[in-house]
């Protein structure tokens, strides 16, 4: 992945085999070529394993002037650069915006400082913009055509929401997010009385996703699934701390213990009280912890308009006191 210089000679007897003669690992992606002379699987990693050795195995934890950069500790892509766009730490003439927090500086001939410059080391300050991932060389306040849902961000409600979009009442969810036909039917209506509470999912400090329920220590620390609700919602629904509750969405339901907490408070949104139901994600039916329900029995099958990351953080549920699951 670092990039390897090959001779351009192919073994005529066996064209599937490249003749590797006198190869050298490259020192950086600047040496990549478009004539086939380089074998390099992942250019951003170039410089990580050079003729000088495995840069990723370096263990020098020195940090000149306490800048926090640790340039000799392992390797950072690209090019061992620790802060990207670091040319922007200086003004137009190459002086640090804040001298007490210098990262780079133009010394009249080149960029020097605590980090590897994110620009040609001899590029004059006014000649090249700092955001060299962009064709403009500048940061984009206007994203051109690069995101599907707009060159500026705009407020859109989650697909399941307690209230309509105040800025654009006719728009449901993100107007360009992909929803498969059958999944529309499994989304609660906006402001639905059947699913009046705004749920969100999250992690606990004692658990890592669905792994540590296989770990005895972590399963002792957090043995059992629960949901968190406010004191106000608990009173309204007749739920006491430690009671079993049932929580359900339009897609499925779960049983869990109720943690009644002041850490969650109802919010007033456009005249409507919104209660939050918090659902930690970590439980299932294998491992050392008690059997429980994962949060995804509830969550909607819709993702981000650009990346398709699922909308786990905002959806609607109902909740009631319960006697718990019948095994």
């Amino acid at each position: 992945m670092n990039g390897y210089l090959v001779s351009e000679v192919v073994d005529p007897a066996n064209p599937s085999r490249m003749t590797l003669q006198q190869g050298k690992q490259l020192s950086g992606f600047g040496e990549y070529r478009d004539d086939g002379g380089v074998v390099g699987g992942c250019w951003v990693y170039s410089g990580s394993f050079t003729e000088a050795g495995n840069m990723m195995a370096r263990r020098d934890n020195s940090d000149p002037d306490g800048a926090g950069m640790y340039l000799n500790w392992t390797f950072a892509w690209p090019a061992n650069r620790r802060i990207i766009y670091n040319r922007a730490s200086c003004d137009l003439d190459g002086k640090p915006w804040d001298a007490s927090r210098k990262l780079l500086e133009w010394d009249g001939a080149k960029w020097t400082g605590y980090d590897v410059p994110d620009i040609s080391p001899t590029a004059k300050p006014r000649d090249v913009g700092p955001f060299i991932l962009n064709a403009e060389g500048v940061g984009r306040l206007f994203a051109r055509q690069l995101l599907r849902d707009g060159p500026f961000p705009s407020h859109y409600e989650p697909f399941e929401s307690p209230v309509a979009n105040l800025v654009a009442p006719k728009v449901r969810g993100n107007p360009v997010a992909r929803v498969f036909e059958d999944d529309w039917k499994q989304l609660a209506d906006i402001g639905s009385a059947d699913f009046p509470y705004a749920a969100t999912t999250y992690r606990l400090t004692e658990h890592f996703h669905y792994w540590t329920k296989n770990n005895h220590v972590n399963s002792v620390l957090q043995p059992e699934s629960f949901v968190e609700i406010s004191v106000e919602l608990a009173e309204e629904k007749g739920i006491a701390k430690g009671d079993w509750v049932r929580v359900w969405s339009k897609r499925g339901g779960l049983f869990a213990k109720a943690v009644v907490t002041k850490r969650i408070k109802p919010m007033l949104c456009d005249g409507r009280i919104v209660h939050v139901v918090g659902v930690p994600i970590h439980w299932g039916f294998v491992g050392a912890a008690r059997k429980g329900f994962p949060a995804n029995v509830l969550t909607p099958f819709v993702g981000d308009a650009n990346m398709e990351t699922p909308e786990f953080k905002a959806f609607m549920v109902n909740i009631e006191a319960s006697t718990g699951p019948v095994a």
Binding site: L147, P153, D304, A305, T309, P310, E311
Partner: peptide
């Protein structure tokens, strides 16, 4: 990230 407009 885990929203229908996570990138935005």
């Amino acid at each position: 990230t885990q929203h229908s407009k996570g990138a935005q």
